[in-house]
Design a protein around this nucleic acid. Structure first.
Length: 203
DNA sequence: ATTCTGATTCTCT
DNA sequence: GAGAATCAGAATT
């Protein structure tokens, strides 16, 4: 995917990233996932963003050029992956929250023995990173370079009527904006069950 | 079916 | 020294 298409506001990049494919090559093999759920994180005006309090060693990749991968370590055991957006010097990123494994299913299953079914393999940000084998060594890789260990492939932009949005997950901020985006109906979305239940109650 | 808790280490205050 | 953009398994209703 061309870097220019990601050098935009995180909220806009979020919509653009849905449906795209993230592919990771490791010594064990290749796993790819179609992105079905993301969250936008802005810069100095977003209290929930890692870059809110300025540049640090941890968040430095968020301040770099668009199209690079920002990987961070959380809760003492998990990794989460983001696509950096905006231009060099302006922080912003999109957290990849869930995907559908499109190739390398066997390896993904090996890495995620707790997954109950296919859509469980990469349902959740740490699960997605785990299924693709993403870890600290991938922090900062250029996703637009075909030679990189991790690549991002674009798709036709998804039509707005297939995109749903809501508040971000795991963000305590009360006045939270609807900056989580997902593909309507995808079973790999982290809140699929809850969402379906609400739909059923309405009918 | 829903809610609770333990795991485990890194980062910034 | 606190808390974290989470997950899995156990406990509880």
């Amino acid at each position: 995917m061309p870097r220019a298409e990601l050098a935009i506001e995180p909220v806009d990049a979020s919509a653009r990233l849905l449906g795209c494919t993230l592919e990771a090559t490791t010594p064990e093999g290749i796993v790819a996932a179609r992105i079905v759920e993301v969250e936008a994180y802005r810069g100095l005006d977003d209290p929930a963003s890692h870059s809110y309090r300025g540049r640090t060693t941890r968040n430095r990749v968020m301040w770099g050029p668009a199209g690079h991968l920002y990987v961070y370590f959380v809760y003492g055991m998990h990794f989460c992956a983001n696509v950096v957006c905006l231009t060099d010097g302006v922080p912003g990123a999109v957290l990849l929250r869930a995907g559908e494994i499109t190739s390398g299913v066997e390896l993904a299953q090996q890495r995620r023995p707790a997954a109950r079914n296919h859509h469980d393999l990469a349902r959740g940000p740490a699960r997605l990173a785990s299924a693709l084998g993403l870890a600290r060594e991938h922090n900062g890789v250029d996703l637009t370079d075909p030679e990189s260990a991790v690549r991002l492939y674009g798709s036709e932009p998804v039509a707005a009527e297939h995109i749903r949005s809501g508040p971000r997950v795991g963000v305590a901020d009360a006045k939270d904006a609807p900056w989580r985006f997902w593909l309507d109906g995808s079973r790999a979305v982290s809140t699929y069950r809850r969402h379906e239940k609400r739909q059923r109650r309405r009918t």
